[in-house]
Design a protein around this nucleic acid. Structure first.
Length: 651
DNA sequence: ATAGGGTTAG
């Protein structure tokens, strides 16, 4: 169907984009022609048009070359106008280029005289889907309606997709509702739209109406369920899929990572390999993230080798993921190694390493890396960088340097102070006993402080036994999460105010606040073993318990005294633990000792912070057993060696 | 020619 274009329609100024640097070069200068020579003119004759079109459509063609070819076509054309076919080709080339807005400019200036066809619109919509400019989408939508193209399912699907991409769910729905015919693509696009906006109820309603759902339909549902946190439903859809492809596997792996179940994510990664699917970069990055959060160093190393073997491009993306994984597994040397090997680094790469060093207690190294970053002109520090910098200052106890960065350097780079910066600063000051200054900083904040910041102040109160301030802080926090009460009761216990300890426990009971159970995991032979505080269910529990008892006896002869004041922070819980066994990290360490070769490093990941008793005991174990023990707690790392810890007993 | 998957912080 061909409809004569309504010229006034195209003349709308909307298509002249003031930001576009687009200019058709009417004349191609000789030297520019010369630049094109080697590519275009293999023989002496003028290249055939199709050849030029092929070059234009090739993804390696730069915008500059594209414009030259474009000008060349006009220049060498005998008649004043090119054919519609040729113009559509140029349009598509611009739509696929790095500057899709050039397509609109070309359309507005060079195509107004044409009787347009469906390809013209298809390519314009292609440009829309890349530029996501709502103003163009609406305009093209109107044109398709006016020129009678709205019965083309392909076109309407593309239009629908554009609206979904730019979060215009209502418009997308209208397009969907008005379509005379719908195919599987229409349904999939609609489902995607609903899941993207979190409307799972509508997505399910559409899903149930799809005559023959395919891989894409089902994968979209998996993603949708994960997005709204319904892990079980996501899993069910996945398990019931008649066929799966790489994208489905990536969706389930990433879904579990994002729903904080990295162990399950790694299980699916393993299953995926059993079923002979070859991972791509997206899989790798998701799996690395899972390894990082669960501390699975062996799996992480395996992935790294896989990356090298299969010739994956080590770009800043993948590099940062590797650095983050190694840092969060406590293997700083390996993180450093990746960093030095990387040819290309972006801000995120630097951030990953700075944060990694800071987390692992290498405060000086983190700060000197930051200074290197400041010299490097190719990157610019951002807010995240300063989180790492301030974290390093706080873990190293560098008050002056911390103040300097907090008050000056952040502003030097034109950055705003965000919640995380305040949290680090309050932590730093609180830790060093400058509780008053810490509190003043909180009071002076432009944004309202969050729970992390109050908790940082509370941490300072605990170290310096400032009960009065702690009480005020807890009141101010309006008492919502259990950690704060535990800390307060902890503090009361440490100064012997048992009556108040009891009171806090009553409040917690009344409010239904439960202490989060401690959980520690350790990776042995590529399997993650998780231990919950006081839980005996591990198959080798008896051996672990025996080992811990044996160590306990050895240690008591070595001057170890249980830290009673901390043990008392939650008596109810503690009694249970004494009857049943030990804190989760002790179980994990015990298991590590009996299941790994002597002398090898034991790595533990813990969901809560290390208690003083475990900290003490771990130090001694590292000495007696001559083992390096690396414990990652909720906030940071502890590297135990020869009876000492990298945190220097501040945490 | 159109539909589903992508890192970094407390």
């Amino acid at each position: 169907m061909h409809v004569m274009a309504n010229l006034s329609f195209y003349a709308l100024p909307i298509f002249i984009d003031p930001d576009s640097k687009f200019k058709i070069q009417e004349e191609v200068r000789d030297e520019q022609m010369h630049l094109l020579q080697p590519r275009l003119f293999s023989s002496t004759s003028f290249p055939r048009r199709n050849h030029l079109i092929n070059i234009m459509q090739s993804p390696s063609t730069t915008t500059k070359q594209l414009k030259h070819i474009h000008a060349l076509l006009f220049l060498k054309n005998p008649s004043p106008h090119l054919s519609l076919y040729l113009c559509n080709s140029i349009l598509l080339a611009y739509a696929n280029s790095l500057n899709p807005n050039d397509a609109f400019a070309f359309f507005a200036t060079r195509m107004s005289h044409f009787t347009l066809n469906k390809f013209t619109f298809q390519f314009l919509l292609k440009a829309c889907s890349k530029s996501k400019s709502l103003i163009y989408i609406t305009q093209i939508h109107l044109m398709t309606l006016k020129l009678g193209f709205s019965s083309y399912t392909y076109l309407m699907n593309s239009l629908h997709h554009c609206y979904v991409l730019s979060d215009q769910l209502r418009d997308a729905r209208n397009v969907f509702d008005e379509m005379p015919q719908r195919d599987i693509v229409s349904f999939n696009s609609m489902i995607h739209g609903y899941t993207k906006s979190g409307d799972m109820v509508s997505a399910i309603r559409v899903f149930e109406k799809v005559p023959n759902p395919n891989v894409i339909t089902r994968t979209a549902m998996v993603v949708g369920f994960f997005r709204c946190g319904n892990v079980l439903a996501a899993r069910r859809v996945f398990e019931e899929m008649p066929e799966r492809d790489l994208v489905s596997w990536n969706a389930i792996i990433l879904g579990y990572v994002q729903n904080r179940n990295p162990t399950e994510a790694l299980q699916f990664f393993r299953r995926m390999q059993i079923e002979s699917f070859k991972p791509n970069v997206i899989t790798i990055v998701s799996v690395l993230s899972a390894c990082a959060s669960v501390g699975a160093l062996d799996t992480g190393k395996w992935v790294h080798i896989f990356v090298n073997k299969n010739g994956f491009l080590l770009d800043p993306f993948l590099g940062s993921a590797l650095i983050d994984m190694y840092s969060k597994c406590g293997a700083v040397e390996l993180a450093l190694e990746v960093f030095t090997c990387l040819k290309e680094k972006n801000t995120c790469t630097w951030n990953s390493l700075i944060n990694g060093l800071a987390m692992n207690g290498h405060a000086e190294q983190a700060l000197s890396l930051f200074n290197e970053m400041r010299i490097d002109k190719s990157v610019r520090p951002d807010e995240v960088t300063f989180v790492g910098v301030l974290l390093a200052c706080s873990h190293g106890g560098f008050i002056e340097e911390g103040r300097k960065h907090f008050y000056c350097t952040v502003k030097e780079y034109g950055l705003n102070l965000v919640l995380e910066h305040y949290a680090c600063m309050v932590d730093l000051l609180g830790r060093c006993g400058m509780l008053k200054e810490a509190e003043e900083i909180i009071r002076s904040m432009q944004i309202s402080p969050d729970i992390v910041i109050w908790r940082a102040l509370l941490g300072g109160c605990r170290i310096h036994k400032d009960v009065e301030l702690a009480e005020r802080v807890v009141l101010e926090m309006e008492a919502c999460s259990s950690g704060d009460y535990v800390l307060l009761s902890n503090l009361y216990a440490s100064v012997g105010r048992w009556g108040d300890v009891e009171k806090v426990r009553m409040i917690m009971k009344e409010k239904g606040i439960k202490k989060i159970p401690g959980s520690s995991s350790i990776e042995v032979n590529n399997t993650i073993h998780e231990f919950i505080s006081g839980n005996k269910s591990h198959p080798r529990y008896a051996e672990i318990s025996e080992k811990l008892d044996e160590l306990g006896r050895k240690i008591s002869g070595d001057g170890y005294l249980a830290e009673t004041c901390v043990v008392l922070y939650d008596i109810e819980e503690e009694e249970k633990e004494q009857a049943l066994g030990h804190h989760s990290e002790k179980l994990a360490i015990g298991f590590g000792l009996i299941s790994t070769p002597p002398g090898s490093t034991i790595r533990i990941v813990k969901n809560l912070r290390v208690c003083a008793d475990c900290h003490n005991m771990t130090k001694l174990i590292s000495k007696i057993c001559d083992r390096e023990i690396v414990v990652r707690d909720r906030i940071r790392f502890h590297h135990f060696k020869d009876g000492k810890c990298s945190c220097k007993d501040y945490w």
